[in-house]
Write a protein that binds this DNA or RNA. Structure first.
Lengths: 354, 354
DNA sequence: ATTTAGCACTCTAATCGTTAGAGTGCTAAT
DNA sequence: ATTAGCACTCTAACGATTAGAGTGCTAAAT
């Protein structure tokens, strides 16, 4: 509501910090003792009353310490401008690990999930880069058996898609190779719309193939992203808030509700933002399943081309500073790395680059 | 130790069944009441003494009911010959779902994990099919930018591998295409050994490329399998044995120890076997991390070519009947489906088929 | 020779006061 | 404005008590 004094802000931060550590309500005495505050517990107590009345703190019961409310966390996160960076040595170590496997994007995803989970001491989730507007780079048709062929699509940006299809009648690898070459020539750099526009000019095998390709790409663009890698589950399962059976345990279901996560990841817009990083606290009133969770989300990749999402998932008393700085760092690192390893050579044509 | 009487076997089964249901020690009265046994609790009690002395049951404390020991489960599983099949309607539903997405092997894996978790009410794990002895079907080189090229390998069986590589000097797509065609001609149907043998005949770009291909395949064959899909975590997390914090919660770590799972999956040989399905109970003395878990493992695919593993992971009091029948059914279904969709057309050359 | 009824005994888990301690809010003094 | 002091509150821990489920044994019944 009303603006807080500087001292109140500090006390709020300390309460949040202490509660993050201990997961138990924090009282005035404990605060003064632990942080060597040069004021008395009574003074702190007075401030706590204000913070409680403002809705940033809450008392489980009359004679207990204070617990941050979702509002409290939000205020704290918004004010968290100084968002500490990761230490230099850590940054270098992580960069090094990524450079080690710069050839295998699939590996990045796992590495990112692992690093994120370790650094934030919470669960992490990472999606592979997903082309926002796929453009074809190369098309290859390969005979497998009888009337079955394998369609391999290489997209601009390096993504490879494959699909098995049945033809109405058998063809030779010879024919397939010719068709591949023809279609690659014709549709190189094209996106779905352009393909569809030019589809009418084709006939026979070529037309069939391009119809499949279009279907496949439409489907791929519609689904936000295939898989969500999750790591650090045990970090979060051992937190006290997820040991009680009823409400708490039910909320673990979100770890399996991939669809929910995809939904979430899709609209990385709601909630607090912190230097390119989104912070969702307690589901923000919208996602009921997330009432017990906080989510720090970032994205990586090249906007307009291929992007992925990465994030930290933990209890409300998540260590936001650490989570945010790690997400931000990885977000930048992976984006740089992507730009470096697979620069888009069609950008000249499309003019999408600035 | 000594052979059990028929009645003792029945009672053992009932104890296991009841304990599976309730997760609490089962006593003589409860057994008689619940299963309408036409004998008195005293008689049952006498038999329970025998079963306990034989090591199949155990008492948490003097005046408690009985709990099955690992030995007890093993005996029970071994004797479980009648291994009930899944009901016909269920089988048909599942088959239908698989046929729906017969084009996308990646989807099978997820579907299998989902079905397995649902049917067994436990966690499930499934690995994608992994070629045991990869043979090249088609090789494609694609220019990306400057000196970077994308190497796409299509293996016999349909697996597609991709890898980004840097050349020492730039080449045109023209050159790459020629090289692709040449190498595909030359190495079609070859496995790693044959590639290595014929590598010396090559030079320049071709030699470089084949060296990468060999490296990649060696690495791929060495790692048992890339990813292990897990589903149904919440099924297992809500079980009472995993709510206590100490020993129990620590054992959840195995869900993240992908390496352990891969190790396990690799040697599908130890432990009890039940019609092609492996049953590991309580780590079988070898895997300490699995002391609290049981694992029902099966494999699918075409032996000698590409196989994957699928299994159920749950507490010791897992519903073995259900788990085994589901694993067996899926194992067969997926094997059939694989054979059907991607028959190996080089088998004539290699003579590996019977 | 089994099977079973009966009974004394054991152990857990739930219930219920009791209490120590951490914390609050208020008032009066600094 | 801050703080010392104090009465008050509420939880969580502790201990004692008890209901109930279960056992093992003995003696009677089949």
């Amino acid at each position: 509501m009303t603006e807080l004094s500087e001292r109140q802000k500090i006390i709020l931060s300390l309460v949040i910090h202490e509660y993050s550590r201990t997961a138990t309500p924090v009282g005035s005495h404990a605060l003064v003792a632990r942080y060597n505050l040069d004021m008395s517990s009574a003074t702190v107590r007075n401030e706590l009353v204000v913070l409680t009345e403002s809705g940033y703190l809450r008392q489980p019961h009359t004679s207990a310490g204070r617990v941050p409310t979702e509002e409290g966390y939000r205020y704290f996160v918004t004010r968290l401008t100084h968002a500490s960076e990761l230490p230099g040595t850590t940054r270098r170590t992580i960069s090094h690990q990524f450079y080690q496997m710069r050839n295998d994007v699939e590996q990045w995803v796992r590495l990112a999930a692992s690093v994120l989970a370790y650094q934030s001491r919470a669960a992490s989730l990472v999606t592979p880069p997903h082309p926002e507007h796929s453009r074809l780079k190369h098309l290859e048709l390969i005979a497998t058996r009888g009337r079955q062929i394998l369609v391999v699509l290489v997209m601009v940006g390096g993504e490879v898609r494959q699909r098995l299809q049945s033809l109405s009648e058998p063809v030779t690898q010879e024919q397939l190779s010719q068709s591949s070459e023809r279609l690659t020539q014709l549709f190189q750099g094209a996106d779905v719309n352009e393909m569809r526009a030019r589809l009418v000019q084709l006939q026979g095998l070529d037309a069939d193939v391009m119809q499949w390709v279009i279907d496949d790409l439409l489907q791929a663009d519609a689904i936000p992203t295939g898989e969500v890698y999750i790591d650090g589950l045990t970090n979060v399962l051992s937190e006290p808030e997820f040991t009680g059976s009823d409400e708490a345990r039910k909320s673990l279901r979100i770890l399996e509700e991939r669809s929910l996560l995809q939904d979430l990841v899709a609209r990385t817009s709601a909630g607090n933002t912190q230097g390119g990083v989104q912070v969702l606290i307690g589901g923000e009133g919208t996602w009921d399943e997330l009432r017990q969770w906080s989510l720090v989300l970032g994205s990586y990749g090249m906007p307009g081309q291929a992007t992925g999402t990465l994030g930290v998932l933990g209890p409300l008393r998540l260590s936001y500073g650490r989570a945010i700085s790690t997400v931000r760092f990885l977000s930048g690192l992976m984006s740089d790395l992507m730009a470096e390893t697979m620069l888009d050579e069609t950008s000249a044509n499309t003019g999408e680059m600035n």
